[in-house]
Design a protein around this nucleic acid. Structure first.
Lengths: 123, 123
DNA sequence: CAGCTGTATCGATAGACGTCAACATAGACG
DNA sequence: CGTCTATGTTGACGTCTATCGATACAGCTG
């Protein structure tokens, strides 16, 4: 359902739930704690595949039943989706029988900026 | 999509040691294995701070002695720097008494592209 | 050579993490 | 209401990991 907003692309304040680019200045302990959670969420192959499956699905959202074929048991899939949700990378919504997961573009963009900033201009 | 390089510092083929953007298609198991290693390397607060310290240092390189003030013991710092090196994010070089660590821009850019691609255009 | 400083490795330990089977819950449908 | 499917939760278990103290190695300096 749901294609109300198709291209939210990048609004101005959408990019910055966390920290400045890695090369701007040494990260504080608190910043690192926050950012590391997000990176850690993508630091597992199964989670990365689940996330990629959702992100590459139509509209950036997918039913669990569409993406749960990653070679691990159903509880494990549920566990990993929960982790991704806790990290702020996905959001979920129940619609009748199925639960749909959707990517959170803002957080994703923030992580990208963290890296591309550092890659683009090495201090 | 592939070669959108805005910055003169990025050479064309520098970006692609791994995989297409997360939203292009569901990631294969092998791709996920490779990419997850890189994300996992940044998935620890101490490593993230060490990496940021190196990246934000002049020239994108720093002596261990300049960045080892992150609240953990010296062996632990060494351990984390080794991990970052194994993940391909840093390279090291001994110069006399000190060892210098330097960021690997290519890998960093690849990770950024993985994310910004997905953030820019939701499936 | 001897001693000092900077960095890496080793061995041990506590805690986190991925995984599964079993069970619980939510909604659909008869 | 009973049952079936889809998903989440719990508890257990083995493995990985972050951390430290002790120690080894490298290079400077006296």
């Amino acid at each position: 359902m749901s294609n109300a907003k198709v291209l939210p692309l990048l609004e101005p304040d959408v990019v910055a739930p966390c920290c400045p680019p890695l090369n701007e200045r040494p990260m504080s302990a608190d910043e690192a704690e926050v950012a590391a959670k997000m990176f850690k969420a993508l630091g597992d192959p199964v989670r990365l595949r689940l996330f990629s499956a959702v992100a590459s699905h139509e509209g950036g959202e997918a039913c669990v039943c569409d993406i749960s074929d990653v070679g691990v048991s159903q509880p494990t899939v549920s566990h990993h989706l929960k982790k991704l949700k806790e990290a702020g990378l996905l959001s979920s919504e129940r619609r009748g029988t199925w639960v749909y997961y959707r990517v959170e573009p803002a957080v994703l963009a923030a992580m990208g900026a963290l890296l591309t900033g550092a890659a683009g201009a090495s201090a």
